[in-house]
């Protein structure tokens, strides 16, 4: 059964390959890209709620995920001509340069994922399973903050590309504005989360386990990491 789950989860690679969200982000059409992602999640949730009733239905989960993602990708693909966007002619030299550039980014992402996974693996060998669970829970909670910060940064990427041609001064102004906006959103989220989730008694009730109290220092440190994600250029 688990082999089939892994196999069907691989379908998501197809929807990922067909997904033209990057075009919309590059053209600073963030609302359309975000709407498609919400559509994908909604379809996924509705399909899981409707089709998954028993443990035997687990195979339907990756299929539902693929269906939601592919529907969103298709909607964005059909919307491209409305933006006046046409598929470019093949430019192999440019493609090679992009591939090399993407290769470095991919390598750094893979390395980062390995490093992030490494601490959990190492903890698995050295501490109790319950502590690994609490560590992962704290990270997952902060991942939401990091995702918000990442979304703000991604929204500024096309603007950076545009002003880069205008020189260092324009880039400095754009960077300052991006940092200010990121901090405007990220700072209260991080500071508030640190106080609410790690400093008060209500967080224990919220997270449903008294063991969470042991994780407060971990959570605070992860919040600092989230703040770095909010503000780093």
């Amino acid at each position: 059964m688990s082999g089939w789950v892994v196999f069907l989860s691989g379908l998501s690679f197809l929807s990922l390959a067909a997904d033209p969200t990057w075009v919309y982000k590059g053209l600073e059409r963030g609302v359309s890209a975000a709407a498609a992602q919400v559509l994908a999640q909604l379809l996924y949730v509705v399909a899981v709620a409707a089709l998954v009733q028993t443990p035997e239905d687990v195979l339907r989960v990756p299929v539902a995920q693929f269906a939601g993602e592919f529907a969103a990708a298709a909607a964005l693909l059909f919307g491209l001509p409305l933006l006046g966007w046409r598929w470019p002619r093949a430019a192999w030299g440019l493609g090679r340069r992009l591939l090399v550039s993407a290769g470095f980014l991919t390598a750094s992402r893979v390395l980062r994922t390995l490093i992030v996974t490494f601490d959990v693996v190492l903890l698995g060998f050295m501490v109790a399973a319950s502590e690994v669970g609490l560590y992962t829970a704290a990270y997952r909670f902060c991942f939401l903050l990091m995702a918000i910060a990442g979304a703000v940064s991604a929204a500024y990427l096309p603007a950076f590309t545009r002003v880069a041609a205008e020189g260092a001064e324009a880039l400095r102004d754009q960077l300052s504005e991006a940092l200010r906006m990121s901090l405007l959103i990220g700072a209260p989220l991080v500071a508030g989360s640190m106080v609410i989730a790690a400093g008060s008694s209500s967080s224990t009730t919220f997270l449903g386990t008294p063991s969470w109290c042991c994780t407060k220092p971990v959570y605070r440190l992860f919040c600092m990491a989230a703040l770095r994600r909010s503000t780093s250029p």
């Binding site: 992030v116 903890l123 971990v218 440190l221 992860f222």
Partner: peptide, 13 residues
């Protein structure tokens, strides 16, 4: 333990 791992993550960031 887990505090050390989180410290390493924060310092890396």
């Amino acid at each position: 333990g887990i505090v050390g791992a989180a410290t390493a993550t924060a310092l890396a960031e």
